[in-house]
Structures are given as C-alpha cells and as structure tokens.
Design a protein around this nucleic acid. Structure first.
Length: 884
RNA sequence: GCCCCUGUGGCGGAAUUGGUAGACGCGACGGAUUCAAAAUCCGUUUCCUGUGAGGGAGUGCCCGUUCGAGUCGGGCCAGGGGCACCA
C-alpha cells in the first residue's frame, strides 16, 4: 500500500466493517470457490458449440506477478467471459514459461535448486492469479519445465531433425570467459558480459540451428493474411525478414586466387552502378581472406582485430571503416580493360550475400568512407534530376536517391530501374567457366535460428555424439532425455558438462559408449508451441492433431509488444514446421493479435539520488506535486512516469492492491484509464475512483433490488422510464461493440454513463411500476455488461437482484433495436460551418421540412444578418448547414 | 541513416470514421449532510470577453480540398518506437 495514502488501507478496512458496504475480500473469495467447485471454466474438446480460443502470453515464473500481468490477464479475461456469454465454447488456458537463466542465477546466488526455485514461484504466482478471479481452465495448466512437456518438445525436435529442419554448423558467438557461456547480443554491454563484466570474446562454436530461412518467403508473404494483427507488428516482422532483390555477379580474377577460385562472386542490389565500381571488398571471414592470412601475418593480425570488435550495436557504430589490400585484382565485368583491387574490409559481413561486395563509393556511404580513407577513386554514375553532368560530384555524402545513369557507357540516360534490368540481362547471357556470370537473387536478412545454449535449466537436446557414428539422434523410445537433479553450481559454466555420469550413454546406433549433447534449447523454443499443447495438454504425443486443428488458430492472442518479433516469428515458424511433420495442419497460429501497453508509475528519488518506492514516500497534505521521504522527512524529487520496474522501485504490488480494494477494482482500473494498446499510468487516485465506483454500483443495485421483481412483459412506459430503457439498450449496443473491438476503456465509459443515468432515476424515486421495471432491467443489463471486467461484484449483484444461477454462465442480454431509434431527434444547425444552435425535428422529417424549420429559427436569421441563405445542406439525421 | 507511430482541457482520454470537439474518469473549486471528519449527494470546471443573455477563439504549426476538417492531402515542428556496417 502506498504511503501516500497510508490511511487508505485502514480506510478501506473501516469501510468494509460497515454493514452496507461491499466487502470485496469476502465476496471475491466466496465466488471464486463457487466457480471452482462447479468447474465453470473447464473446457471440453467435445463441446459442439463454435470454438473461441483466447490466450494471453504465459508468464515467466519470476516470483511474483506484476501489474503488467494484471493488465494482460484482465484483458484476456474480459474477452473470454464475453465470448462465453455470447455462446462460444471458450478455451482460456494458463501455463508457465519456466525454463531460463534467472532460475540458474538464483541457484548460484542463493544455493537453491533451479527446479525448486521455479516450482515454488509457480505455486506462489498461481495463488496470485487465482485471487484475480480469472476464468481459466486450470485443468490444462503446465510448465515448460515439466518432464511431460519437454519430453514432447524433444520428440518434436527429433521429428524436425528427420524432416531436415534442424542442422549443426559452426557459428560465431559472444563468449563470456568467466561465466563460460554464450551471450546474446543484448547481453553484451560495452563489450563486456552483463553479469560477469568480463571482456567478451568472439568464438566459433558448433551449434544447433532451426532452418527458419526455409520459410523466409512464406513467413513474409503470409504477413499480409494477418489482418487482425497490429500494422506495427506486421511491419516489424517484414523488416526483420528483410527481403532484398539483387544480382549475384562473378568477377574474374586476373590470376586465380590462392584458394583456386577463378572468379569472385558478390551480391549487389545496385548493378546499375557497376560503372562506378572502385574496388572489391571481402569479409574478414571470407575463405579467400582466411587463406591469404595463412601466408600474410599482417592480414592475420588485421582479421583478428576485426573479430575482436564484436557484433554489438555500439561497437558497430563507433568502428571506423578499415581494410587491407590483398594484392589480388579482378576484371570489370562490363569493361575488361578496367582492373579493380580487392580489399579485405571490416564492414563486410560473411553471413549476408556472399561475404563479398563490389564498392561504388559515389552511391554508398560506407564505400565512400572507405574510399576516402584509402584514396580510392570516386566516380558518380547516377545524376540527380536537376544536376549538371559536367560538374556533379560527390564529396563526403554518397548520393543514394533517384536519378539518371551517366558516365556508364551503354547505360547512359537510363533510369536506375532500366539500368538494373539491362545489366542483369547482359550478364546473365555471359558464360564464364561453364555458368552465367550473373544470376538474379533474393536475399533475406533473416538468419537461421541458433538454439544451442550452454545452460543447465533448459530442454536437453536429445542427440548423442558417438566417435564412430558421429551425431546420432536419441531413439524415440528412450525419451525423455531427463535433466539430472543432482547438479551443482559452484563453478561457472554448464553443470551438465561437469556432471559425473549424465553425459555418458550408449550410442543408439552401435551401442558403444558415447556422449550426450550437453547443450539445452533456447527458451524461445519452449514458447513456440505451448499454445498448441494447451489443446491436448496430456497427450503422449506433442499434439493430438484433431484437438489442435479444432482449436487453433488462437482467435485472440494478447501480450506485450516486446515479443513483436522473436516469439511471434518463431511461433509462426514452428507452426509451419509442425505442419510439415504432421503434428497439426495450419500455417498461422494466431488469427488475432493484440499488443497491450505497459503499466507505468511516477518515480521518486531521495536527496541522495536513491530511487524510492511509493511506499517509502508520503505526499504533503493536499499537494500531489511535493512529497517527503517517510524515513528521513527529507524532500523527495518527483521524477518522470516510467514503466514499473524493480530497478526504479516504482512498482505497486498487485496482491497489496487486491487485499485492500479487491480484484475487481484492480481489474476495472487497469482497463478503464487508457486505451489498451497504450501505456496506463497507475495512480492511487485512479484506483480509488474505481473503488468508489464499485461501492456506487453496489449501493444502487441494492436500492433497485428492494423494488418488486419485474414481470417479463414490459408495462406501459412513462417518459423517464422510457429514457432509461433507451439508455440501457444504447449502452448494451455500445458496450458489445467496444468489447468486440477490445476498446475496454470505451466500454467502461459507457457503463459509467449508464450508472449515472440509473443513479438519476433512483434519485428521482422508483415509485412508479414502470420506472422500477426499467430500473431493474437497467441493473440486470448493467450487471451482465460489467461481469467480464468485474466478475465477483457482478455475481454478488446478480444474486441481490434475485436471479438464480451464475452470471458466469448466463447469456449476454438481448438487444431491443427499436429502443435505439427515437421519434424526434436533435439536429445541430451550422451557419457557414459554425454551429449556431440546434433544432428538434421528427426523425423522418423531409429535407424540405427541416429546411423550413431551420430558416424559421431566430438564431439562424441573426447569424445571417439579414441575408438570404444561398444554400442549405441537410444531412438527414446528422446536421444542417446553412450557407449564407 | 532507413522504416513506423503519436501530438485534443490541469491530467488519462472520448468523438458513430468528413457532420454538435472535450463523452467518461482523475484532479480542482463551490454547496448539502455532519458537533466534526470520513463516506455520500448536488453543482461548476477548454480559453478569452461579458454582471448577464450572449459573443469570439480553439484539436502541435503553416497551406490546401470541402457546404463542413481533430478526422482527408501537402509541407514543417516536437515526442516516442523499431531496425541498423544487410551491399
């Protein structure tokens, strides 16, 4: 509880001791028990109704849930409960993304076993989720570290291996020599390991890869079918896959390279600028560079330097363009009289294209930087639209925009596109050494997915290394390859490597002693297919294809934008791969995707500059802009609003909030204040507003419930009663539409409006039978409409209103369309586009009648200042505009 | 550098997709109730001007399209995000 409202906790307690107050804590526990005992949210695979699969990204069991989880799961729960009320057979499961580094860090720091740490966290967090009152089918729960789950993952791996979707290759990695582990690029900070602080080395390791690039084109193309995904995410995925079309061109060496190659093959997207070529560039890792280095110590040193620089973003940004002349020369493919030097250059990547380029400094910034440094020629060949060919030159900025080709012989005068095509056609027809000099090629930025991790707490890769047979897959009947429990973390590195017995086994092929693979799988593998596993969580195969095909795709997937690329792309790949091995039969796992915003909070700092949590500060009475530190009384600096994080201490614990105000209040608040895709600012005032609303609804429902139960037939309605009925049904139409479109904040606002209207009616008295009838209908509808967001309060009110059965099992209320249209309507009247007043006319009034009514208005005459209207535009049932 | 998104009161945000800008909530202010407080209820709250009815301006800035623009188009400015030696 926030110290700013140190009194609030006691306040809330005081409130609940008053008899008529709504006691969230007791009520919520009671209804949760009822739902549980009746198995209300258990879902059957055999239900004949239309299916709806709603899923929130499952949590990592870090120890406690945070407000981000609350927001995410509240949203999913609204959808699940709404769709259930709409008659769908709803699958809404929950599980745990339970493998990963933090468990091992905890093991090293606190001497607990990763398994114990993980399962204890899961038990605690499950309890936290349960008090949120989520409509989850807990019978389908699993953790990815459950042996049952990772057994099936190993089975999938072996099927992928058999299907040619898995391979091993040597690859460069960031290696932390102290922790003895591979680091992801994000874990390298200023060239040092994020944990150990040791200088990171580039190492070549043999690693396992998934062939995601087999699906580059398919993954790219199918993005266009994902029309219920945010445009932003689709764009990010497109950019990540990074398709570029170009030409592979082979340049003839003047004398064969030391590797024996007669030609140097490069990839370019700008064949139109070939006449601007000034030199060739090789990656330091190119086979020719490597071969040359064997007999050239200077080059060997240079290549070693390049490798040390690493792959982090900072390193790349600050690195100067550097290179070394190899002494090799090639012939220009379009003009054999031109010879070009071949350099090894530090900015060329081995794993894109062919690891070699031709450089055109005038039209590529990197090439230009390099050319200026080494005094190489810069020859412009693309002329900007209004430039003069005689004087146009490039200084320090390469010209990369559109223009006309010049200085290029037979290409002169062509557009860039025409020149590309002309060059391609010409070089495709030239045969060197038995094959075409050039071929069109599509290149992707997307790389294969390296899944090897030198870690203990992950899914073991089920293969065996045999001296005689090489790499041998484990036999299916020998699965699972279980993680050993008896490990220790007293030394850095992978405990599986050091285990006394675990890695020793018999070769599945020849039976001789062999060694297990000790690498485990990237945890992204675990989360790439869990959504499929939920459809048959206890199957003895990875999936039950009938169940998977019946439930998938996920109709609505909800989670953070931070997974916009990797998790979602891997899952899309996995679904395709699983289709290939017959585990299911579809390509796209998530039909609808929604990425919710973060939960943010003000930050606070002490006079010494230390971060302070909201519980450590107290606001000065009546002032929300100044506060003091509780412990010292010193003034507090109130900082910017940021994502809740442990490091900035600006977190609010969901459990504290739920204990004080109840889960419904917490859920209502995170749904109400901001559009769900944007960040929401957590404020104590806001939560109290939600809490006030809960009490208000409870009071109003209580007053209405004291009136006699309404008959099925509506009585003759008076004006006030009819107005309330109209409001009720309009709200129903709007809330339905808003929830369908995930506009929870709008749905909340509509519900507030209805409650205000009910309040007004109650305030004016419920004496008339028709008013009481309308008020009861309004409350029945209100309770149903708020049930997806505040399920406990809804159940309690439902009972109070005299209904038997559960709201959780009730159908969405019926809409009376006739109440949405009114006989007379208010039309705004503009004069020359500015609103001057309004008129009330019959709904079906003719244009002529509306015009007549308009010109008769005194305010219209006044605004026209005596002139006659030149034109009157009547938009039926919308607006009138008088042009004068 | 490339790609994308967002700019509306003191604050979070609505606006039927070109038709009454500011719904709803928070905060603030005034009042009722109370011995007093809490809670609750009733008001006011975009800005300027006016005692008032009213009048004028207004959705980051400029220009345009339109009877009519927060919404569409063009050009700026500011903030945020993604990718980044990708040839």
């Amino acid at each position: 509880m926030c110290a700013r409202f140190a009194g609030a906790s006691e306040m809330a307690n005081l409130m609940v001791t008053e008899r008529e107050r709504y006691n969230a804590r007791d009520v919520e526990a009671r209804w949760q028990k009822v739902w549980d005992e009746k198995d209300v949210f258990k879902t059957s695979n055999e239900d004949p109704r239309e299916k709806y699969y709603v899923l929130e990204m499952f949590p990592y069991p870090s120890g406690r849930i945070h407000m981000g989880h609350v927001r995410n799961y509240a949203m999913g729960d609204v959808v699940a409960r709404y769709k259930r009320a709409r008659g769908f057979n709803v699958l809404h499961p929950m599980g745990w993304d339970a493998f990963g580094m933090p468990a091992e860090n905890a093991a090293m720091q606190n001497n607990v076993h990763p398994k114990d740490w993980t399962y204890e966290n899961i038990a605690f967090m499950r309890g936290q989720l349960k008090i949120m009152g989520l409509s989850l089918d807990w019978s389908r729960e699993f953790a990815t570290c459950d042996v049952e789950y990772y057994t099936q993952q190993q089975r999938l791996f072996l099927k992928f291996l058999e299907a040619g979707l898995v391979y091993r290759k040597k690859s460069k990695v960031n290696w932390d020599p102290v922790d003895m582990t591979v680091l992801a690029n994000e874990q390298v900070i200023d060239g040092r390991g994020w944990r150990s602080g040791a200088l990171v080395e580039q190492r070549e390791l043999t690693q396992w890869f998934f062939k995601i690039t087999d699906y580059s084109e398919d993954l790219l193309e199918a993005i266009d079918t994902l029309d219920r995904w945010p445009e932003k995410v689709r764009l990010m995925q497109k950019n990540w896959i990074g398709k570029s079309e170009g030409l592979r061109v082979r340049f003839e060496f003047t004398a064969p390279a030391p590797t024996g190659d007669k030609t140097l093959e490069i990839f370019t997207t700008r064949p139109d600028t070939l006449f601007g070529a000034s030199f060739m560039g090789l990656s330091p890792d190119h086979p020719i560079s490597v071969k040359l280095a064997e007999s050239n110590p200077d080059l060997a040193v240079f290549i070693e330097d390049c490798r040390r620089i690493g792959t982090s973003a900072e390193a790349i940004e600050t690195a100067e363009k550097k290179g070394m002349d190899t002494g090799l020369r090639v012939k220009h493919p379009l003009d054999a009289s031109i010879e070009l030097p071949v350099y090894v250059a530090n900015f060329i990547l081995m794993d894109y294209g062919t690891g070699a380029i031709f450089a055109c400094p005038a039209h590529d910034q990197r090439d230009l930087d390099f050319a200026r440094k080494y005094g190489l020629p810069v020859k412009p060949v693309v002329l900007p639209k209004d430039a003069d060919a005689a004087t146009f030159d490039v200084a320090d900025i390469a010209y990369t925009d559109d223009g006309t080709i010049f200085n290029s012989g037979f290409l002169d005068g062509l557009s860039i596109a025409e020149a590309k095509e002309t060059v391609a056609k010409k070089l495709e027809a030239v045969i060197i050494d038995g094959s075409a000099q050039a071929s069109r090629q599509v290149n992707y930025r997307l790389r294969d997915w390296g899944i090897s991790r030198q870690r203990y707490w992950g899914c073991p890769i089920p293969v065996i290394h045999c001296d005689d047979c090489g790499v041998v897959p484990e036999k299916d009947e020998n699965l699972p390859v279980k993680l050993p429990d008896d490990i220790n973390f007293d030394k850095p590195g992978n405990p599986l490597d050091r285990h006394a017995t675990w890695r020793h086994c018999a070769c599945p092929k020849c039976g001789k002693p062999a060694r297990r693979e000790t690498d485990t799988m990237d945890t992204f593998v675990d989360s790439s297919w869990y959504f499929a596993r939920f459809t048959a969580p206890h199957a003895d195969q990875p999936t039950e294809p009938a169940a998977a095909n019946g439930w998938l795709a996920v109709d609505q997937y909800i989670g953070g934008i931070e997974h916009a690329i990797l998790h979602l792309l891997y899952s899309r790949f996995f679904t395709r791969a699983m289709q290939k091995v017959g585990a299911l039969n579809l390509k796209e796992p998530f039909k609808g995707l929604f990425t919710q915003g973060m939960v943010t909070h003000e930050t606070y700092k002490s006079t010494e500059g230390k971060w302070l949590s909201p519980t450590e500060i107290q606001f000065i009475e009546g002032d929300t802009r100044s506060a003091i530190e509780v412990a010292t009384g010193a003034p507090v600096t109130i900082g910017s609003i940021e994502k809740m994080s442990k490091s900035k201490k600006n977190t609010v614990d969901p459990t504290d909030i739920i204990e004080t105000y109840g889960a419904d209040t917490a859920r209502w608040f995170v749904l109400s204040d901001s559009p769900p895709e944007r960040d929401v600012i957590w404020t104590e005032e806001g939560v109290q507003g939600s809490w006030r609303f809960v009490q208000r609804v409870w009071r109003l429902v209580g007053e209405v419930a004291a009136t006699p139960k309404r008959s099925t037939e509506a009585p003759q309605m008076g004006d006030a009663a009819l107005e309330l009925r109209r409001a009720t049904h309009k709200t129903l139409a709007a809330v339905s539409r808003d929830i369908e479109g995930l506009g929870f904040n709008r749905a909340v606002a509509r519900i507030y409006e209805l409650v205000n209207q009910i309040g007004k009616t109650v305030h004016n008295g419920l004496g008339d039978a028709d008013t009481a009838w309308a008020a009861r209908e309004a409350c029945d509808y209100l309770v149903m409409m708020m049930a997806p967001m505040m399920p406990h309060l809804a159940e309690e009110c439902w009972t109070e209103l005299g209904h038997s059965g559960l709201v959780a099992e009730a159908s969405w209320p019926a809409l009376d369309e006739s109440l949405l249209v009114e006989d007379s309507i208010v039309l705004p009247v503009q004069v020359n586009g500015k609103k001057k007043g309004e008129i009330t006319v019959a709904r079906d009034a003719s244009t002529a009648d509306v015009e007549a009514a308009t010109v008769a208005q005194e305010f219209v005459q006044r605004a026209l200042e005596g002139r006659a209207p030149r034109k009157i535009i009547v938009v039926p049932q919308r607006i009138v505009n008088v042009v004068g």
